[in-house]
């Protein structure tokens, strides 16, 4: 059976790409046609309107689409979580130098950022930070980063920066920093423009990141698709496969970037700045089996973040949102326990 899957070219699209490249889909009798989508909005619309059968999508955007908060109404469901964590907050080198935090601990970094952002707000020139889409864990992680330093998130301007524009936006001063998924923070650091200030896994440990959203009309094809992508995700999480995975992702038509830069993401060895200071973060991007169950707790976290960000109508959408996540379909796929 032929299925059309959309993804955005990022490291955490690895499970859907590996499902195709490493034969996990074929083993389930599926023939995947993968398309790289140019934006989250277009991926969401193509999925909602039936041009895609399934997609690698931001967990909050999947819920927002199903709840008719973003884009055309959709009936998508989430039978599998693809990843936890994976983002980082990169600040421009000049901003980092001015902040001069006492240590690299999150509390000190966020505190120093909050003081700068507060001063700039007072001066009528608020700092500008880039996210990837309003309905993203990136948006919420930037807000939580502000709050970790005691800053009201409304004190900074939040704009969207398509990841491929992030380096240019930083170099031209269009943004003072951004939160993006791998490998875009590493790209900004390698370009000598930014300093990774905080990792997503420190700001919000084990935050739901990407999910596999599928159209319910696939019916019987859902369990084999879940098995194929879940097995692929577990293959990606195995340290023995990192080199091969990084090389496959690095190629066209996928990420088309330096494989060494991509490999570091999966190793959890994060280069923070130009001089090459490193941080070991084994949970930087989690693709392992324990990250795969679509949990009600994730829905709860996302909805509370949406509410805090002023993205929610007054009515209680939690029951409707919980119905979008389908741990029953994950269980029905018959995967070995995590």
């Amino acid at each position: 059976m032929r299925l059309h899957l959309g993804y955005v070219p990022l490291c955490d699209a690895a499970p859907v790409i590996a499902a195709h490249e490493m034969g996990f889909a074929r083993a389930e009798g599926l023939d995947l046609e993968l398309t790289a989508e140019p934006s989250w909005a277009t991926l969401r619309d193509r999925l909602a309107l039936g041009y895609l059968d399934a997609a690698h999508i931001l967990a909050p955007l999947a819920l927002a689409s199903a709840l008719a908060l973003s884009g055309p109404p959709s009936d998508l469901i989430v039978p599998l979580s693809l990843s936890l964590n994976g983002n980082a907050i990169t600040l421009s080198n000049p901003l980092w130098a001015t902040m001069a935090p006492e240590s690299e601990r999150l509390a000190d970094v966020a505190g120093a950022f909050a003081r700068m952002a507060g001063a700039r707000r007072e001066a009528g020139r608020p700092l500008t930070l880039g996210t990837v889409h309003p309905f993203s864990s990136h948006t919420y992680q930037l807000r939580l980063f502000c709050e970790a330093g005691g800053l009201d998130p409304a004190a900074v301007r939040l704009v969207a920066v398509p990841p491929q524009h992030s380096v240019e936006a930083l170099s031209r001063g269009i943004v003072d920093g951004f939160c993006a998924g791998a490998p875009w923070n590493a790209v900004a650091v390698a370009a000598g423009l930014g300093r990774i200030a905080a990792l997503g896994c420190e700001v919000a440990p084990d935050a739901p990141e990407k999910v596999l959203a599928v159209a319910p009309r696939l019916e019987g094809a859902i369990p084999p698709l879940v098995r194929a992508v879940a097995h692929a995700g577990r293959w990606c999480a195995d340290p023995a496969n990192r080199t091969e995975l990084a090389h496959r992702l690095a190629r066209r038509p996928y990420l088309n970037l330096d494989p060494h830069l991509i490999a570091r993401t999966f190793e959890g060895t994060i280069v923070l700045d130009g001089p090459g200071r490193e941080r070991e973060a084994p949970d930087y991007l989690r693709l392992d089996a324990a990250a795969q169950e679509p949990r009600a707790a994730h829905v709860g976290w996302i909805l509370s973040q949406m509410r805090a960000a002023g993205q929610m109508p007054a009515e209680d959408l939690l029951p409707a949102a919980e119905a979008v996540y389908r741990p029953d379909l994950y269980a029905a796929a018959g995967l070995s326990p995590a």
Partner: peptide, 9 residues
């Protein structure tokens, strides 16, 4: 256009 997400924000 990758800029759609800018407009969404």
């Amino acid at each position: 256009s990758p800029s759609r997400d800018i407009l969404e924000q």
